[in-house]
Design a protein around this nucleic acid. Structure first.
Length: 419
DNA sequence: TCTGGGGTCCTAGGACCC
DNA sequence: TCTGGGGTCCTAGGACCC
């Protein structure tokens, strides 16, 4: 059996964990740049605030209902996620962290254990240890565990745990699950399936396998089988990233090269750091810039430059160099730029490294520089040491006017309790 | 005025090889 | 008039996830 533990309204719950006055109140968390809603507490959902809605469209609704609004604080959420995962890991020998707020665990050898009791214990313990409410779904396949998890969240008297372990329960659950809510069926397929009068997950399983294969390929076929109780997905051990992207929308529109160069330097540096963390090198670097696609009355420009690196690298200085050269080749004066980014792809392990016969760079030396830089930044804080082109102006910086404190990672932000 | 950021996998078709 | 059979690799686009 697979268990899926998923945090309830994760980002909103993180904000609440250290600010209990928010309990029972509507809370929303906004995306970078305070752009759109990416998390909502149950109360905010009741108010009809949709996921992904731009914040400015909700201004009135937010004011009249006294919704508490937060900029996203990924440092806090990342740290809270680790705490949740640490607790879950004490309950299982095989665990797969699937995203920032959910994890699968393998329930093998649990034949003589009361799964309901076990699940309730997991849910209770995680919530007690971290302050984050979670739910757990248990079933024979990952996709069914996902379905079970939705019911665990939906019905209070389940005490946060739902188990689908018989055909009767499976049929009942699938009949109550909209086709679009199935893991692996997104907006497009859900629309196409509805065209064939498939409205819920049960309808879907009643179609012949070949028909599904024809319409949706092997991925659809796998989902079909999983819903029928035949496992297609095992526990995954996520390997190294195959592409790494760092990109941001700017807090204000930029027209000049200088602040955009600074931003792009920082994005390249971010990619380099991520590469070093997973002990990989990148072989291709892409840099892109574009104007604001929503501003339809303005002149639009999008361009990107893809560059093959002469030697695979994870060196910040080298990647910044490429990125800035690429930027220079695509930047045009006269546009209001809104976003830029750097993507590193064709990622290979650090060793063995294929060198370049004519390479003049002292790679040993630069490697040591990077190692020292990383260790200084680990010890004294992010970006204590950086490359000059990363700059200090930060004209491109994000808008985040409603940022909560970093309660768990910054000494100055630690809560004070008056007793 | 104001609309996020980061990933994965699969498939079809074209170009090429013998 | 008639034009084989068997492969690989790459890329763009489409779908999905959180």
């Amino acid at each position: 059996m697979f268990g899926l533990i998923d945090c309830n309204n994760f980002y909103a719950s993180c904000e609440r964990a250290f600010n209990p006055s928010l309990n029972g109140k509507p809370v929303v968390v906004l995306s970078n740049n305070d752009g759109c809603v990416i998390a909502r507490s149950a109360e905010a959902k009741v108010l009809g605030i949709p996921m992904g809605e731009p914040a400015y469209k909700l201004k009135e609704l937010i004011e009249t209902n006294q919704v508490f609004v937060f900029s996203s604080n990924y440092v806090l959420y990342g740290d809270m996620s680790q705490r949740v995962m640490n607790t879950i890991s004490t309950f299982a020998t095989d665990m797969e962290i699937y995203s920032i707020d959910e994890a699968f665990i393998l329930l093998d050898g649990f034949e003589n254990i009361d799964l309901k009791e076990y699940g309730e214990n997991v849910v209770r313990t995680v919530t007690r240890n971290t302050g984050i409410p979670v739910s757990m779904g248990i079933a024979h396949t990952k996709t069914l565990a996902k379905v079970a998890n939705k019911f665990a969240k939906k019905y209070k008297n389940y005490k946060g745990v739902c188990i689908i372990d018989t055909d009767e329960k499976r049929e009942k659950a699938l009949k109550l699950t909209d086709i679009g809510d199935v893991w692996g069926i997104g907006r497009r397929y859900s629309k196409r399936l509805q065209y064939y009068s498939i409205n819920n997950a049960w309808d879907f399983t009643q179609r012949p396998k070949n028909w599904v294969r024809h319409l949706m390929g092997v991925t659809g076929e796998r989902t079909w089988m999983e819903l029928c109780g035949i496992p297609c997905f095992g526990m995954d051990t996520p390997g190294d990233k195959k592409s790494i992207c760092t990109s941001r929308s700017f807090g204000e529109r930029l027209t000049e090269m200088a602040p955009i160069s600074e931003a792009v330097s920082n994005f390249a540096a971010g990619c380099a750091e991520k590469l070093r963390q997973q002990h990989s090198y990148g072989c291709v670097l892409t840099v892109f810039i574009h104007t604001n696609p929503f501003a339809t009355n303005q002149a639009q420009y999008y361009n990107q430059k893809v560059m093959q690196l002469s030697v695979p690298t994870n060196d910040t200085t080298e990647l910044i160099n490429y990125a800035l050269r690429g930027l220079k080749s695509i930047f045009i004066q006269g546009y209001q730029f809104k976003k830029a980014g750097v993507i590193v792809s064709e990622i290979v392990p650090e060793r063995p490294l294929q060198g370049d016969l004519f390479d003049l760079r002292n790679r040993e030396k630069f490697n040591r520089v990077m190692t020292v830089m990383d260790s200084l930044n680990t010890m004294y804080g992010k970006q204590k040491v950086k490359i000059a082109s990363q700059g200090f102006d930060r004209k491109w910086k994000l808008k985040n006017e409603r940022l909560s404190p970093c309660y768990t990672t910054k000494l100055d932000d630690v809560l004070e309790v008056n007793a």
